[in-house]
Design a protein around this nucleic acid. Structure first.
Length: 358
DNA sequence: CGCATTTGACCCAA
DNA sequence: TTGGGTCAAATGCG
């Protein structure tokens, strides 16, 4: 798909509509959820799913240079109306490494930029990060925050993340740079490593709090406050492909509004982790899980990547309106306390089931 | 008590 | 010398 002005405008309209829907859903969820409001909320969440899917589809063929260009050129207005991100997925070398390569100097570590995003929700990436520094950057009114994967030590995960608020108006827009791939899900904790929330045998990921908790002033306190722990797949091998399929299935389910079965397949059901417990940062709420079988949403897998691998885009590519798609055999669920929540609705209805957002 | 965050100091390349 | 990135002791929190 050509990424011309027209496509950009269409993408903008989609995302602006998505932002409007998001506000509407938020308003609905703040009040008492009687039958009518619940129905309306579900309808809005369906439409939100469609917006995400369409937007991801439109971004799918972006080359690195194209997205880099978007990141450089995109005014805050481009992302002002949405919580979605402009993503860069294919690895490119960090500027510093390029410099080193040119000059023949090589430091001990290699830093690979695996992804860049412009987003209003820099914390919403499903991964667990520990802040290790912040720096005032020249020509920027805002500091840059530095994060490492929580498992960087006990699992030697090299994944890092930098969050830089872009200068501009409200709402704040952040450039998030991901360095190195996560390897924490490939390794068991080092022997003798104390078992904690951050190093339990079952790696955990978090669904983070809403953007308003992000303190964009002098420090990053609260950036990850109010996190919710979800399971991270420990299974190596075909897990990524399975995750892709699961996420695509979830999105498709949201969009179609299919009703999940009351008994989810065991491979998708998660049970509360006995090891999950509050940790120092934002605390881990009661809803912490371990997978009962080898499957979970992608920890850091890009949803756009998942979408890009879709065999079936459930919309007419010319009108971007829904088309009929065969229903999947099963639908993932989450167990939250005693609630059996269809995973398909987790992204949009999550605040209804937990207090983790507040 | 153990964790994450804060923040000044340090390292290193330009 | 400067700026970006990282370290690590101090601190705060649950």
């Amino acid at each position: 798909m050509a990424f011309g002005q027209e496509t950009m405008e269409q993408l903008y309209r989609e995302l602006a509509g998505g932002h409007h829907l998001s506000a509407k859903l938020h308003a609905l969820l703040e009040g008492p959820l009687d039958g009518r409001r619940l129905e309306e909320a579900i309808e809005v969440s369906r439409e939100l799913g469609r917006v995400f899917m369409v937007s991801l589809y439109m971004l799918r063929p972006c080359s690195d240079s194209r997205v880099d260009e978007m990141i450089r050129a995109a005014p805050p207005e481009t992302t002002r109306t949405t919580d979605n991100s402009v993503c860069l997925h294919t690895p490119t070398k960090d500027k510093r490494i390029r410099r080193e390569e040119v000059s023949g100097i090589r430091r001990g570590r290699e830093e690979m930029v695996t992804r860049r995003e412009i987003t209003q929700s820099p914390h919403k990436d499903g991964c667990q990060w520990r802040k290790y520094g912040q720096k005032i950057i020249q020509n920027s009114n805002f500091p840059r925050y530095y994060f490492k994967c929580t498992f960087s030590r006990d699992r030697r995960c090299a994944a890092k993340k930098q969050v830089q608020r872009r200068d501009g108006g409200e709402p704040p827009v952040y450039l998030v740079t991901y360095l190195n791939e996560h390897t924490c899900h490939l390794q068991a904790p080092a022997p003798g490593t104390p078992t904690t929330a951050g190093s339990s045998p079952t790696a955990m990921i978090r669904v983070h709090s809403p953007p308003e908790v992000l303190d964009s002033t002098r420090n990053g306190a609260g950036l990850f406050a109010g996190s919710l722990v979800l399971p991270h797949d420990d299974v190596v091998g075909g897990a990524a492909a399975k995750e892709s399929a699961a996420i695509v299935t979830c999105l498709a389910t949201v969009i179609r509004g299919a009703v999940p079965p009351t008994t989810p397949p065991s491979s998708f059901s998660w049970t509360p982790s006995a090891e999950a417990r509050p940790s120092g940062g934002g605390g881990v709420p009661a809803a912490a899980f371990v997978p009962s079988a080898g499957h979970s949403p992608s920890a850091d897998g890009s949803v756009a990547d998942e979408a890009a691998e879709m065999d079936c885009f459930p919309y007419d590519v010319s009108t971007l309106s829904p088309v009929e798609v065969a229903a999947p055999d099963h639908h993932p669920h989450l167990l939250i306390g005693s609630c059996d929540v269809p995973l398909a609705l987790m992204d949009t209805v999550w605040p209804h089931y937990t207090h983790a957002w507040r």
